[in-house]
């Protein structure tokens, strides 16, 4: 699904060069739920931006869903983001002036779907996150957890192969965080590949696979998730 080979990213200012990523290698297979952790400044966010085609990189290759995306132009990368990648952000990034329906509609418009198709997808995805009855509400009228659910609905509406989550529960309290996490797991079980960036070890432990980033490199990988998550699951439902 996602293969990064020797990817490099350097930030330059007048005075210094910062190597955000160096020889970054990572392979994520279809259907995986991967958590990427690491301390602040480790290169997590840079990795996320590059994986999500939000930023370009200098060296190495990056293959997304079998396609080499190293040398795509801005337009091609926009299109690829739109079609293949769903984004979930820490601060939800809903558009405050648009109601839920219009918010979920945003990526679908760029996709060029027909009106009926968009309507169907918006309703389905809002249904999936349990907010179908609040379509005309504005984001400001929802709680943080609900807002993140809308963001997930927005990410899913276009049926992406690959979901990128950036601290998806960072702005949520524990209870809401659990329910969002549960939702992500559910989505993963239905076949969508998820890569989640977080600094929260506990949250990361819920993923099937953990990757630890330090100094711009993948330094360590841990195995399968621990059984603890089952209790969490129950807690969330309860």
């Amino acid at each position: 699904m996602l293969t990064m080979t020797d990817v490099k990213k350097v930030f330059r200012t007048d005075l210094i060069e910062t190597h955000a990523l160096r020889d970054f290698n990572l392979q994520v297979d279809e259907g995986e739920f991967v958590a990427v952790t690491g301390p602040s400044g480790s290169g997590k966010t840079t990795f996320l931006n590059i994986a999500g085609l939000l930023e370009t990189f200098e060296g190495g290759t990056y293959q997304l869903d079998g396609q080499n995306v190293s040398h795509l132009n801005d337009r091609q990368r926009s299109q690829l983001r739109n079609e293949k990648i769903g984004f979930i952000f820490q601060s939800f990034n809903l558009i405050p002036d648009l109601n839920l329906f219009d918010n979920v509609d945003v990526p679908l418009r760029y996709r060029g779907f027909k009106r009926n198709e968009r309507k169907k997808r918006i309703e389905e995805s809002l249904e999936l996150v349990g907010l179908a009855n609040r379509m005309k509400h504005l984001p400001s009228q929802l709680s943080g957890g609900q807002q993140q659910r809308v963001a997930i609905a927005r990410a899913l509406a276009g049926n992406p192969r690959f979901l990128l989550a950036d601290e998806p529960t960072g702005n949520l309290d524990t209870k809401m965080a659990l329910s969002v996490l549960e939702l992500l797991k559910q989505i993963n079980q239905q076949g969508t590949t998820i890569v989640m960036v977080t600094h929260d070890q506990h949250l990361a432990s819920q993923a099937k696979r953990n990757i630890y980033v330090r100094d711009g490199q993948v330094s360590e990988m841990s195995g399968i998730a621990e059984p603890a998550h089952i209790e969490m699951h129950q807690a969330a439902i309860g």
């Binding site: 801005d74 990034n93 945003v106």
Partner: peptide, 16 residues
Amino acid sequence: KKQIGTRRALGASQGS
């Protein structure tokens, strides 16, 4: 700015 970045992330081209 943030909204525009989000739109771009969600697939808006510069033209959009």
